[in-house]
Design a protein around this nucleic acid. Structure first.
Lengths: 213, 213
DNA sequence: GAGCTTGTCACATAATGATGTGATATTTTT
DNA sequence: AAAAATATCACATCATTATGTGACAAGCTC
């Protein structure tokens, strides 16, 4: 029967590719639906072999796996991709995930976990090597830090800046928290002094955006 | 000898706590350095038993594991914490990780992976259940999406909004990209119409912040 | 207890922003 | 080829912000 999970492999190293392919072949839950040395034809290949899950190397000749994922996902958003690579730098990880990869395994621990990982993605999970997960979680936007505390604004000042950042006018802020318009002005003035800025937008940028892009 | 990894357990369900404790006791790489039914005294306990890794439930009487982690990490930042819980909602996950937890295991798959997970954190990794990892990666700030494209602003409009978001005044923007002040005004007006907002700050919030918090 | 920070309010003025009404040339879409 | 969208500029007016100066009570700090 054919409700085996169909797995395609993109890996330019022939030896490793063969190892990965045989792991898939020898399993009884998966079947191999293509093995390729580059991802130049990833869309065409996917059309032809319709895999459910793709194991994708990053460093391949002609076109990186990350670009491959990006193109693939634009056409086949439902196909799950697990990156399988030696790279563990923040940029590549981030770009791969942004491109649409669901999993990210380092080659050094992928062989043992490959089958589990494929099952994970089919079950709606995201198999990620623990060391990669740590990096993802340490990316500045994920920590939620680098935000409020660091400018030693008082709670009240932050409260007011948050309201302003949502687009409320001084008047609306004054109404919202029942203080006078002039008091709002005073707060804003103090905030400006502390942050060395001269407009709400600049203050908002400094406190809520700068470290998140 | 004593370079076993010291593991403490916080879990209010006595049965589960005993199971976890015995897994640790029976292993030959770890030793149990405390088991507790609540985390009210987490700092004191940690001072007394100095564990390397803590397995922490979230839902405990008196004080949630998340608050426990927050307090613990403020005093012992080097102690690794793995959340072990039934909850998989975005808020709890995010708050736990923000509080300083390194790993996040769902109880349903934690028993099998507990020992591996403890090793992972000691090796600098972040053991995260695949289904949790998926949720983390889908949080809007991690996708890098939800930003520009979605409001069908033109490139020029986005360019101007970006400059304004940094705190530049209309005048400065005009100077910066060599257009007239009135042209800036026109752009801003169009941006407002497209976004249905009435101030730079509100526009910035909608385009650059809203989905990132 | 003197000094500093914080939260609160008031008045005044100059600069900037928000909004309306046009207009023209170029590109893109239909 | 006509219609719609985009990039550019101008003038006018009212509302809102930015900034200065000043004040006072409560709380914390040394």
């Amino acid at each position: 029967m054919s409700n085996l999970i169909r797995v395609a492999i993109y890996e330019d190293n022939a030896g490793l590719r063969e190892i990965l392919a045989s792991i898939i072949r020898d399993s009884d839950e998966f079947e191999l639906s293509g093995e390729f040395a580059h991802c130049l034809d990833v869309v065409r290949n996917t059309k032809a072999f319709s895999p459910d899950v793709i194991i994708m190397d990053i460093d391949m000749p002609g076109r990186s796996g990350i670009e491959g994922v990006k193109e693939l996902k634009a056409v086949f958003p439902e196909v799950e991709v697990i990156m399988n690579t030696v790279f563990d730098d923040d940029d590549r990880i981030f770009n791969a995930l942004k491109a649409g990869a669901t999993g990210y395994l380092l080659k050094k621990n992928s062989l043992a976990n490959l089958l589990t990982a494929i099952k994970d993605v089919k079950n709606g999970g995201a198999p990620i090597s623990p060391s990669i997960a740590r990096k993802v979680l340490q990316m500045p936007f994920a920590t939620g830090k680098g935000t409020d505390e660091q400018y030693n604004l008082t709670e009240r000042e932050i409260e007011i800046l948050k309201l302003l950042s949502k687009g409320l006018s001084y008047k609306m802020v004054a109404n919202d928290i029942n203080i006078s318009l002039d008091t709002v002005r005073t707060y804003v003035k103090r905030i400006y002094e502390k942050l060395h800025v001269h407009s709400v937008t600049e203050a908002v940028h400094k406190v809520f955006i700068e470290n998140k892009q």
